[in-house]
Simulated assay, not measured.
Amino acid sequence: MTWREVIGRYRGSMLGLAWSFFTPVLMLAVYTFVFSVVFKARWGIGGEESKTQFAVVLFVGMIVHGLFAEVLNRAPGLVLSNVNYVKKVVFPLEILPFITMGAALFHTLISIGVLLLAFILFNGFLYWTVIFLPLVLLPLIILTLGLAWFLASLGVYLRDVGQTIGIITMIMMFLSPVFYPISAIPESIQPIIMANPLTFIIEQARDVVIWGRLPNVWGLILYTLIASSVAWLGYIWFQKTRRGFADVL
């Protein structure tokens, strides 16, 4: 079902799955031009900062946010778009968020491949710490699944959730260090930025990919424990509320 989800997105197009590669390449090219040429933005890392370096750092944040937003934006409509499965008692509705997550991870892996290729082309090397990137993304995946179970259930009873979550994910993008470093934020506002669940993961992803630093293991462990609790609660909520899906639909 995950593979069908991926293929279905490009069915009928001439390039097919090739779009999953060209899209992040075009995004990276646009980010490089807009932010480093038009806005002349810099990350403030000191020394001679190239235009392409800013784009690569920015792209890491976009990849993390994209994974999170793609799953949550689709979560409220998961049950609504699969009404025929609701009528089948034996079908495990709780796997629907896994299917969406699998499709999102497929596109995320393609984007990461483009990111690493661009980093090698721009710098001529790749930090060995990049092997920790799956470890960094794992807590976010767990948290996103938990939230997806909540939203998939709420989307059945409250149709406005589908409209609201898109606005929330967009706000979270601008309230996380995707387009700017945390150091550029006034200290009085930094706690708000740090409370964003995307902030820690974005910073850790940049550490292991861009800066060649080891991840914050204890921070990831704490994040994983919190994310696991959210996922557990989300799963229980989904299982408790699914009994009324057929009546509402």
Rank of each mutant, 00 (worst) to 15 (best):
R243H: 12
K240P: 08
S228W: 00
V38D: 04
V83T: 15
I141K: 00
S36F: 00
L137T: 00
A75V: 10
P191Q: 10
V178F: 08
L233N: 07
D207E: 14
F59V: 07
L133P: 09
W149V: 03
V37K: 15
H107L: 06
M101D: 06
A75H: 05
Q190T: 10
A184W: 04
L105Q: 02
W232D: 10
W232C: 14
I193P: 00
A231I: 04
W218H: 09
K88E: 07
F59A: 04
H65L: 06
M62D: 03
G46E: 11
H65I: 03
I45F: 07
Q190S: 10
D207N: 14
P97S: 11
W43A: 15
V208T: 05
L80N: 11
S229A: 14
F98C: 12
L78T: 08
R242K: 15
I192G: 08
E48H: 03
F98T: 06
Y235K: 10
G234N: 11
V30G: 03
K51I: 05
G166A: 14
F119V: 09
I221T: 09
V56H: 01
L28W: 06
W3S: 01
G12V: 11
L121D: 07
R159S: 13
P92H: 12
L115K: 07
I210D: 03
L126C: 10
R74M: 09
L96H: 09
L225N: 02
L135H: 02
R243F: 02
L214Y: 12
L133F: 13
Q163W: 12
A55E: 10
L249G: 11
L143D: 03
V30Y: 07
F245T: 03
Y85L: 15
V56T: 13
F54S: 08
I63Y: 05
L140T: 11
Q190L: 08
L220P: 04
